[in-house]
Computed example of a mutant assay.
Amino acid sequence: MTESDKLFAGSIPKLYDTLMVPLIFEAYAADTAELVAGFSPGAVLETAAGSGVVTRALAPRLRTGTRYVVTDLNQPMLDYAAARQGDSADGRSSSSSSNSINIEWQQADALKLPFEDASFDVVFCQFGAMFFPDRTAGYAEARRVLRPGGRFVFTVWDRIEDNAFADEVTSAVAEIFPQDPPRFLARTPHGYHDIALIRSDVSRASFTSIEIETREKTSRSPSARDVATAYCQGTPLRNEIEARDANALQAATDRAAQVIASRHGEGPVAGKIQAHVIVAAG
């Protein structure tokens, strides 16, 4: 993973939320919210919250009085998530517009959580662990702040070949830069998919009960153009494209749209997505 893989700034947060979230994240967010709420937690910590898609799904499901702390490493993403929730991301506790749950927004590194031991009943992270430079250290931090009997819930994408649009965009952009193809999607979002490795990493963080379920869903979009724009301009893939040629972003987006349309048709498109859902306890 490169430093640019973690850079969600500029116009990326808005494009990510308006295009990427409905494309691939909302369906899994509903699953994660249902899973976390099902544990009836009194205190919840969300790490790598991104633009807040799970936050918006989970807050209405939590019991009144539940402590809900939402964090992300990237302040621009946290600011965007808080604004979408109708809150302020200045570190203060503020009431969610969806119900009486107080959400605490805090910039934080999942590998160095600024919370006391045994502070939460559930720690969860949707599609953020792939970005951890030291995953076992991140899992160990989750373990540290969990109360006895608490659960750590996280999701990661399966291999890129099982995620149609990501695979097609990667191949299309490679045509624009054949000598140095951008590999962000394959390298980072889809680079941590081996179940045996995931289980080993979580086990080394002192979790003793580890359940892993692979879930397939369908990604849908009004058009191939929206899919191409989402991936090329609403993720750090944009950083890789512009680093190679500052003027090539539109050409890369156009080519990705052409490839997707050729495989999925004109008009609304649909493609397979697949991810692993992990629930760990210690």
Rank of each mutant, 00 (worst) to 15 (best):
I176Q: 13
F207G: 05
A166V: 00
G50C: 11
L73D: 05
A256W: 10
A29Q: 12
P13W: 04
Q85W: 00
V69A: 13
Y80E: 01
V269R: 08
A59H: 12
V123G: 04
I212E: 02
I101E: 07
F152H: 13
S88T: 09
V156Y: 00
A252G: 04
W157I: 04
Y231L: 15
G65I: 09
A37V: 06
S219L: 02
H193G: 05
T71P: 11
R187W: 01
Y68S: 12
I198K: 00
A196Q: 06
A37F: 08
F132A: 08
T188W: 01
A59F: 14
F165D: 04
R61Q: 15
E240F: 08
E34G: 15
R220V: 15
E242A: 04
P182G: 01
G265K: 05
A89V: 02
I160D: 02
N247M: 12
I103Y: 07
R143L: 03
E175I: 04
L237A: 07
D87H: 08
K217L: 11
F25D: 01
S262G: 11
Y28D: 10
A246T: 13
R263A: 07
E216P: 12
D201I: 10
G138V: 11
I278G: 09
R183D: 13
R144H: 01
T2A: 08
Q126W: 03
Q75S: 03
W157P: 11
I103F: 09
R183W: 00
G128Q: 11
A256S: 15
I176K: 13
F120K: 02
H193Y: 13
W105M: 10
D180C: 13
R238H: 12
R151M: 03
A205G: 06
F165N: 00
T170V: 04
A172F: 06
N102R: 13
G265Q: 05
R244G: 07
K217W: 04
P222F: 12
H264G: 02
S206P: 01
A248W: 00
E141C: 08
G38S: 05
L45N: 02
P13N: 05
R187S: 08
Q250C: 03
S94P: 01
P222L: 14
E116T: 01
P60I: 12
A256L: 11
S262W: 06
G265H: 07
E213H: 14
Q75L: 12
A270F: 11
L113Y: 03
T218S: 10
L237P: 11
R84G: 03
T55A: 15
